[in-house]
């Protein structure tokens, strides 16, 4: 019996930022087995850097990235990888660059070889799926922060990736939009890795938690029971927390 190779595997990834003497990441190993993963770690611990290395935007000093069992080496390999992995940036303003929402969402499919008609169809259905019907002709830089985040997600989903890398997606979202994003993420078929400091958000969208600790990627224990005080007024209502 043959088992499929994991979608993504990292082997011994090390990386030092230019001009820094000590490495940021050292010997990171990771195999994506389960679909929904949360990634935590202090500011500057290399979470975003790890995403950039996976996408081939930064080159690791050592180690291998494997996509479905194949080692990614050249830019050509990463070009293939980028069709399967979608990366949602921390700042949506960096991700939206076309004048209208529809053009921005269609940018990926067009680059992947879809005809303008197909690209338009995919984009409209993606927007509809995210509850953004009627946004097609809106001007991207005039959207609100929450709308920008959802449109940025649409620009990635329209490429129909197999894995999503989301960098702090719940930052600066109001509670309603945050709930909406949670619902969307729970409803997606794709696997995802989410960087966040928002443990409640991770608890509702992920089944497993990893942390960057001492330059390594460490899997967190499943459940820990503890009591704590709430500074928000919803403490007496039932709600979930991460680890």
């Amino acid at each position: 019996m043959t088992t499929l190779p994991p979608l993504l595997e990292l082997r011994n990834i090390s990386y030092s930022s230019p001009g820094q003497s000590s490495p940021l990441l050292e010997g990171v190993n990771f195999i994506l087995r389960e679909g929904r993963i949360g990634l935590i770690g202090p500011n500057g611990s290399g979470k975003t850097t790890l995403f950039q290395i996976i996408m081939g935007l930064l080159k690791a000093d050592a180690g291998e990235i494997l996509l479905q069992g194949k080692v990614m080496e050249q830019e050509k390999d990463f070009r293939k990888l980028r069709r399967k992995l979608g990366f949602l940036f921390q700042d949506s303003d960096d991700q939206l660059f076309s004048p209208t929402v529809l053009e921005d969402v269609a940018f990926g499919p067009l680059n992947l070889g879809a005809s303008p008609e197909e690209a338009q169809k995919i984009s409209i259905s993606t927007l509809e799926h995210l509850g953004l019907k009627g946004f097609e002709e809106r001007i991207t830089h005039r959207l609100s922060g929450g709308e920008k985040k959802l449109v940025a997600l649409a620009t990635i989903l329209s490429m129909q990736p197999k894995l999503l890398l989301l960098d702090e997606p719940s930052n600066n979202l109001d509670p309603t939009t945050r709930e909406r994003l949670i619902k969307i993420l729970r409803g997606l078929d794709q696997a995802h890795i989410i960087i966040s400091h928002d443990l409640d958000f991770l608890a509702s969208t992920c089944t497993q938690l990893y942390a960057i600790q001492d330059r390594q990627l460490v899997r967190c224990e499943d459940k820990q029971v503890h009591s704590h005080e709430h500074i928000h007024p919803y403490g007496d209502k039932p709600h979930q927390h991460g680890t």
């Binding site: 980028r82 069709r83 979608g86 660059f97 053009e103 067009l110 680059n111 303008p116 690209a119």
Partner: peptide, 23 residues
């Protein structure tokens, strides 16, 4: 910012040619 926008474009399969949606 230009660099980050460029990265976002590369991630979405950009290869030097802008393809217009409506022609």
């Amino acid at each position: 910012r230009a660099e980050r926008v460029h990265q976002a474009m590369i991630l979405r399969g950009f290869n030097g040619r802008l393809i217009p949606l409506n022609q």
